[in-house]
Design a protein around this nucleic acid. Structure first.
Lengths: 249, 249
DNA sequence: TCGTTATTGAGAGCGGCGCTCTCGATGGAG
DNA sequence: CTCCATCGAGAGCGCCGCTCTCAATAACGA
C-alpha cells in the first residue's frame, strides 16, 4: 500500500534562523542540509557558478549521489535556497551596519549602507553574482521567495531618505526635475505601501543612487575598473560621497 | 607518419567583418561557424545561459556530435567567441547611434549613447548577460580578447566628455570635489594614453555616469524595477538626463 | 586528367552529470 | 518491544563535453 508518494518532507528554508528542531532526526536533518549548503557555497566560490554539482557535494559529504535527494529536491532548488540565503546575508549585514549609526546622521547612514553592500559583495562575490549577476541554469528565480529578502536593502535606503526629508536635511543640487508622468505612474501606490511622502524627484534620485551603488559594486567585481582604478575601496567611498551629495544628503 | 597533430585550424574570429575566404572550403567552413554561433545565440536566448550545449547545436545542424569539434575547439571557446561578438555588436550599435548626432550637441550625444546601450541590451538580453552578468561556466573571460572590444563604449563617452570640456560646455553642479590621491593614482597615465585633459573630478564623474548607465540597464534586465517602474524606457531616459546633468553636460 | 592529401563526418567510447527507482538496514515513536 | 518512517546504497536512464579512429570526399598540384 502506498502511504507516501512524496518521498520526504524537505527542510524549509528560514532565513538563517535556527530551526526549533523537536526530534533528533529533524535536528540531524537540518544539520545535513546546512552542510550541503555550506559545501555548495564553497564549490560556487572555488569552481565557479556553473560548476555546482550535487554529485560532488554528495561525494564530499561521504554519501552516495542518490542520497543527496533526501535533503534537496533538485539542483535548481538548492540554487534557489542559496539565492535566498544570499539575499538574507546581504540584508542582515547591511542592516547591522546601518543600525550602528545615529538616526540623525543621515549621510553617515548612507555611507554605512553603501560600504556594507560593497563589503559584503567583495567578501561573498559568488553569492553576489548569484543574486545580481545573470542567472545560472535556465533562469530560475521564483519571485515569491526572493522579493521579500531582496528588498531589505532598498527599504533601508528608503527609510533613510524619508528620515532626512522629514528632518528637512535633503537638498538635491540644482532645481528639482519635473518627472514625466509615465515614470511616476506607480509612485502614488508605492508611497502608500511604504509609508513615505517623498516627492517624485526624490524617489527618482533615490532609485538612481541605489542603482548606481550596485553598478559600482558590479563593475568592481566584474573587473571593469582594472587599469583605471587600483584602490577600488577608496574609489567606491568617493563615488558614494558624490552619489550622496547628488541625492541631496 | 604523423604529419598533423593539431586536428584542424579553427576559424579565427574577426569581429563580424566578412572573412575574405579564398578557397570554397574555407568559405563553407566560415559559413558553418557562423551557423553554429547563430544557433548558439538562439539557444542562449530561449534556454538560458547555462543550457548552451554543443551536442544540441550539432543535432540542430544535422551533424553528429563529434563533428562539431571540427569547427569549435570547445564549449568554453564558443562562449568566448559569443562574448567577443557581443562586445562588438554592442560597440557597433552604440557607435553608429552616436555618429548620427552633431559633434557639438554634447548632451544629444550622451543621450544617444545611453539609449543605444539600453536598446541593444533589451534587444539582446542574453548577450548582455554574457558580458555584464556573472560568468557562466567556471570563469572564462580571456582578457586579451575582451578588453579591446569591451572598451569601445567607454571610449566613446570619454571622447564626448573631452569634447564638451574643450568647448567649455561642462559644468558639474556644486563645486568640484577634491579627489583622493588613492583614487586618482592611475589617472595621469590614463590621460596620456587616451589623449584627454579632463580633471580628476571629471574623470571620476564620468566613471560614475558610465557605471550608473550600466547599473540602470542591469537592474531593468534583472527585473529589479518590477512593481516600482512600469515604463522602464521613460525611466531610463529620465535617469539618463539626470546623470547627464550631474555629469555637467 | 588523375592521383594525393587535407578536410570532413560518422561511430564508438570515456567519465561525469541530474535524477529515478528499488531494496535492505536502522533507529526513534508509539 | 515492535513497527514503520526514514535513510543510504546500488543500478540505471538519458544527457553532457570531449577523444580517437576510420572511411568518404573534395580540392589541389602534377
Amino acid at each position: 500500500m502506498l502511504t507516501k508518494v512524496v518521498p520526504a518532507p524537505y527542510g524549509v528554508h528560514n532565513g538563517g534562523m535556527a530551526t526549533k528542531a523537536t526530534t533528533p532526526r529533524q535536528r540531524a536533518r537540518q544539520q545535513t542540509i546546512r552542510d550541503i549548503k555550506r559545501i555548495a557555497r564553497r564549490q560556487l566560490a572555488t569552481e565557479g557558478t556553473g560548476a555546482l554539482s550535487l554529485r560532488a557535494i554528495a561525494r564530499e559529504l561521504g554519501i552516495v549521489s542518490s542520497a543527496i535527494y533526501r535533503y534537496v529536491p533538485s539542483r535548481d532548488e538548492l540554487l534557489t535556497m542559496l539565492i535566498v540565503d544570499a539575499y538574507d546575508g546581504l540584508g542582515e549585514a547591511v542592516e547591522k551596519a546601518e543600525a550602528k549609526i545615529g538616526r540623525g546622521d543621515h549621510s553617515g547612514r548612507w555611507a554605512a549602507i553603501g560600504r556594507a553592500v560593497r563589503q559584503w559583495a567583495v567578501t561573498h562575490p559568488e553569492e553576489y553574482g548569484l543574486i545580481y549577476g545573470s542567472p545560472v541554469p535556465g533562469y530560475k528565480a521564483p519571485p515569491e521567495r526572493t522579493v521579500g529578502p531582496g528588498s531589505r536593502v532598498s527599504l533601508l535606503i528608503l527609510r533613510l531618505v524619508t528620515d532626512a526629508h522629514a528632518a528637512g536635511e535633503i537638498r538635491p543640487p540644482g532645481r528639482a526635475d519635473a518627472v514625466p508622468a509615465a515614470v511616476a505612474e506607480r509612485f502614488p501606490e508605492l508611497r502608500a505601501q511604504l509609508a513615505t511622502d517623498l516627492s517624485d524627484d526624490l524617489i527618482v534620485r533615490l532609485l538612481l543612487a541605489w542603482t548606481s551603488v550596485f553598478g559600482l559594486v558590479s563593475f568592481e567585481l566584474g573587473g571593469q575598473y582594472v587599469g583605471v582604478v587600483d584602490d577600488t575601496a577608496a574609489h567606491f567611498d568617493h563615488q558614494l560621497a558624490v552619489l550622496g551629495r547628488d541625492l541631496g544628503l
